[in-house]
Design a protein around this nucleic acid. Structure first.
Lengths: 190, 190
DNA sequence: ATTTTACTTGACTATATAGTCAATTTTATG
DNA sequence: CATAAAATTGACTATATAGTCAAGTAAAAT
């Protein structure tokens, strides 16, 4: 098993705190306290707070997304797979929402480099939804468009849950979404 | 014409800056500088920064929403009216997104009072969308559910535009949304 | 006109924050 | 083991920030 490096500790703590309290709401000292490290260690490895955020986006958030959805490309019924993923809320933290969404909201208008990094991850997310539609009877163009819309709806659903501080609206919206998209019939398993 | 009070100036500036830079990203001094006022004036009228935010939400954001959508209740084809409102992007600032959404993202997990105030406005928004469906052939329950989903999709579309720093994704998603919801046919006007 | 109330001014405090840096310890490397 | 390189320590600086407050000014009430 791999050793947890100082860099890992920083990225882990930063990821958690940025998620829970936002970038501006989290201080360098917060990160260091959580990681059990001292200031010099961080500034030895990173130029500053912004570079920590970039690492969090490019390494942790992008990685988590990939882990969550990579099977979509090979699974038999990808749309069902996606729906199941979306409705498995064990790990879903309705209180704090979506790590990607949160950062887009806070940072995209403010910093161009960060906006670019976030935009890449956002595109990867749309690509997974596009793959989820591969079995459906639509043109490629329509799949792209529907995938885009589905991502927006799910992100909006997460926001609704955050507004309510309750996961119920999220579940309802995701159900409603899957009622509206024209589904290609699969043979039911079992 | 009504005189612009000191209170108005503060709420105007705060609203603008919170929208553009977020609550944590905006300092009291930023607000005062923008409003051309001094510190004492603000603290004479408000207990603190949080109370300024509450006033912004309850007075300005709620009011703007009402102004934008109040005609939905009386207009002939409310769904078309809604779509037109959504696609009229003159005033829509894709770079900074939705004032309500931004604040939900940043503040709802952090402060319960603010979460409540935001939740009220969010509900008002869903109510307007519900009214937009009043002519459609659905059960009341389904209208509620579809309205909820539509709000989520539009909010998600705004977020997509913010992620892209471009209004195009927003327009595309809104179009796609109106393709999918089952529309009751109205006689075309003209 | 005089008093009282409402509002405004801006200096001040206490604290939080991002980032620096010289000294020290730990870890490779020959 | 000796030396060089990498990593770590924590005190320090400079600045920003929320909020206080005593004194002053304008507006209202009597």
């Amino acid at each position: 098993m791999k050793k947890i490096t100082t860099r890992d500790k920083i990225i882990n703590s930063a990821h958690k705190l940025f998620y829970e309290k936002g970038f501006n709401g989290t201080s360098i000292d917060d990160i260091l306290k959580d990681a059990g490290l001292n200031k010099g260690s961080l500034y030895h490895l990173f130029q500053g707070k912004k570079e920590v955020l970039l690492a969090v986006i490019e390494e942790r958030i992008a990685y988590n997304l990939e882990q969550k959805y990579k099977d979509i490309a090979t699974v038999e019924n990808p749309l069902r797979f996606l729906k199941q993923k979306l409705l498995t809320t064990d790990t879903f933290d309705f209180k704090h929402g979506c790590a990607l969404n949160n950062l887009v909201q806070e940072m995209s208008p403010v910093d161009e480099d960060i906006a670019k990094a976030l935009w890449q991850v956002y595109n990867a997310l749309e690509d997974y939804y596009f793959l989820a539609l591969r079995e459906e009877n639509m043109s490629e163009y329509e799949k792209k468009s529907v995938a885009k819309m589905m991502v927006a709806t799910v992100e909006g659903a997460i926001m609704a849950a955050k507004a309510a501080q309750d996961k119920e609206p999220y579940l309802q919206i995701v159900e409603q979404l899957f009622c509206l998209i024209p589904m290609h019939p699969h043979k039911k398993k079992g």
